[in-house]
Simulated assay, not measured.
Amino acid sequence: MSTMPSAAPAPPLPYDVVIRGGTIYDGSGGSGYPGDVGIKGDRIVAIGTVEGHGKREVDARGMAVAPGFINMLSWSTVSLPADGRSQSEIRQGVTLEVMGEGSSMEPLSPTMRANDLKRQGDIRYPITWTTLGQYLEVLARNGVSPNVASFVGAETVRVHELGEARVDPTPAQLRRMQALVSEAVDEGAMGVGSSLIYAPGPMPRPPN
């Protein structure tokens, strides 16, 4: 009894996604140019005239195709713990949110945590962290759409040790503030972010 040979399986498509016919702005600062973008996995693997097909084809004619944008002054610190989809940023093409200008979500003392809970407005969420590492773990566990980076806020470090009073730190308090910054950097902070026009940033000493 003869059997028919089975057909060879079709070769896999070379791309997962092909974005067709958009105006490409590649981030170099030059003018946009028409072309296609081929994506495989999480990488762009072809730009220009892309031969072959993708599992998904996107018609981008009349649209701009660009790398993700960076929000260098993000205040999604409050919204991301409550809703990690970040629709207001993602729908504008923002893929990296940089936080921590002046104030940050950490480090928190028990008093700061209680005050932050009391001061929550329409967006409400539990505050289960005290350090930057713990805050980032909460975001990762909940799931967030954008990439996230953070400075540690100079104001937050000050309030942690001095409260909101108009006082200068003692040498011992200053050392504790330095230790908080060092801990935050070890946990991923990009550095210290200051915003000295906002209290308690400037904190001028009261007149004699």
Rank of each mutant, 00 (worst) to 15 (best):
G191R: 03
G29C: 10
R141P: 00
V37E: 01
G22T: 02
P12D: 15
P9S: 10
P146W: 13
V98C: 05
G191I: 06
T170V: 05
V17R: 03
V78M: 04
R158W: 06
D168K: 12
K118W: 07
A114I: 00
R166P: 01
Q120N: 07
V159S: 02
E97T: 08
P171E: 04
R119H: 13
A140R: 15
M63A: 07
T130Q: 12
G163L: 08
E106D: 09
L180H: 14
D116M: 15
N71T: 05
F151K: 05
M177I: 05
Y25H: 13
P202Y: 08
Q92A: 10
R166S: 09
G188Q: 11
I127R: 12
V144W: 04
M203S: 15
P146Q: 13
G35T: 09
E155P: 00
V78Y: 01
H53T: 14
P107G: 07
G68A: 10
D116C: 05
R91L: 15
P110R: 09
D16N: 06
I90Y: 08
E183T: 14
S109N: 04
T95A: 11
P67E: 08
D186I: 00
P5L: 06
Y198E: 13
N115V: 13
V94T: 13
L96F: 01
G30E: 09
L136V: 01
A66E: 01
G193C: 03
A179C: 03
G29W: 10
G38M: 05
G163N: 06
E137C: 00
M112F: 03
I123Y: 03
Y15D: 02
K118A: 14
V138Y: 05
I70N: 10
Y125W: 07
E57F: 11
M72T: 15
E155M: 14
P200K: 08
S104A: 11
L73M: 09
N71W: 03
A64I: 14
A10V: 14
M63Y: 07
T95N: 06
G30M: 03
Q120C: 07
P9E: 11
G27M: 06
G84V: 04
M4I: 12
P81N: 02
P146K: 14
R43T: 12
G153V: 06
G121F: 01
G62R: 03
A64V: 13
R61E: 12
R166Y: 13
R119D: 14
T3M: 11
G133E: 06
Y15V: 04
T49L: 08
V192W: 05
G133W: 06
D26Q: 12
S74T: 05
A179P: 05
I197M: 13
T3W: 08
W75G: 03
P12K: 11
M112A: 07
R43V: 04
G163A: 08
M1T: 11
V58G: 10
G38R: 03
S145V: 05
M99F: 13
L162E: 04
E187T: 02
M105K: 00
E155V: 02
G21K: 09
H160A: 14
